[in-house]
């Protein structure tokens, strides 16, 4: 019974594959990602197929999600941010479904692997950098100088701003990964207590497990939401280089 609480996060290759020295083996995480992609695509296509004026259950759920994502974009980037809608919606739905599917016992939480979240974060941050340099050219480096900085403060402000810029992808990746991992470790430990406690006392941790599972559903939503909001904020920063205050609603 002596098992590390991190044991469930270990991946074992089902089908070892390699492509030019690159390890592309099929493991549980890969399969779950395929399942998530298939599920999201199926649900969304199915919901969009009928297009009734009075929406059915599935269609109204999809409309709610789309409305939610559009609300986030309009709040953070304004109207011209809508061209990123496909990217933002894909990210949100993929992360949300990964988090939720991971809560089914026996399944796997893909977002508890920092590789996955780091790739998302790097894509988002890289895109914001590319966008910024394309739109503003070398003037985009001005993002390192907050408006209204006196000249003598520049040697201090530029390193600080550089650090906080570089911290963005890291905090994006670490937040999602850490929240998902920590939640599942807690669930695992509580359930282990319930099993080893027996009938007499085991019901107490078991009740906590159920309560925590409910909380984890909320966390799954909130983490997907935060990732999406921050994606929009970073892309928006690249758009309006400290221009008008785009955070006023």
């Amino acid at each position: 019974m002596e098992e590390s609480p991190l044991h469930p996060f270990e991946l074992h290759n089902y089908i070892p594959l390699s492509l030019g020295g690159l390890d592309i083996s099929i493991n549980k995480a890969v399969i779950i990602m395929w399942v998530v992609v298939a599920l999201v695509a199926y649900l969304m296509l199915r919901a969009g197929a009928s297009r009734q004026l009075v929406p059915g259950k599935l269609q109204s759920l999809a409309e709610m999600l789309v409305d939610f994502i559009r609300g986030i974009i309009l709040d953070t980037m304004g109207k011209d941010g809508m061209r990123f809608f496909p990217l933002v919606a894909t990210l949100f739905l993929f992360i949300l479904f990964c988090n939720l599917i991971g809560l089914i016992p026996g399944s796997y939480t893909v977002t508890s692997q920092i590789v996955v979240t780091a790739v998302f974060a790097c894509v988002v941050y890289g895109l914001s950098l590319v966008m910024g340099f394309l739109l503003h050219g070398a003037k985009f480096l001005g993002i390192l100088v907050p408006p209204g900085t006196p000249g003598w403060l520049l040697p201090l402000m530029i390193p600080i701003e550089l650090i906080s810029q570089l911290a963005r992808p890291i905090s994006l990746a670490v937040r999602l990964f850490a929240n998902m991992t920590a939640g599942h470790v807690i669930l695992g430990v509580l359930f282990g207590l319930a099993i080893s406690g027996g009938v007499l006392i085991g019901w107490l941790p078991f009740a906590f497990t159920i309560a925590m599972n409910g909380l984890e559903v909320g966390i799954a939503f909130i983490q997907a939401y935060i990732f999406t909001v921050l994606t929009c904020v970073y892309l928006g920063d690249a758009f309006h280089l400290h221009g008008h205050d785009d955070h006023a609603h």
């Binding site: 939610f68 609300g71 986030i72 709040d75 650090i163 906080s164 570089l166 911290a167 963005r168 890291i170 905090s171 670490v174 937040r175 850490a178 929240n179 909130i222 983490q223 939401y225 935060i226 909001v229 921050l230 609603h249």
Partner: peptide, 25 residues
């Protein structure tokens, strides 16, 4: 997206990791 509960919770979760990430960097 303007529900104060979600907005507040979102902010709260953000700030913690933001502090940590700048330290790491």
């Amino acid at each position: 997206s303007q529900d104060p509960f979600y907005a507040g919770l979102g902010q709260a979760v953000r700030i913690g990791t933001d502090l940590l990430a700048s330290l790491i960097v």
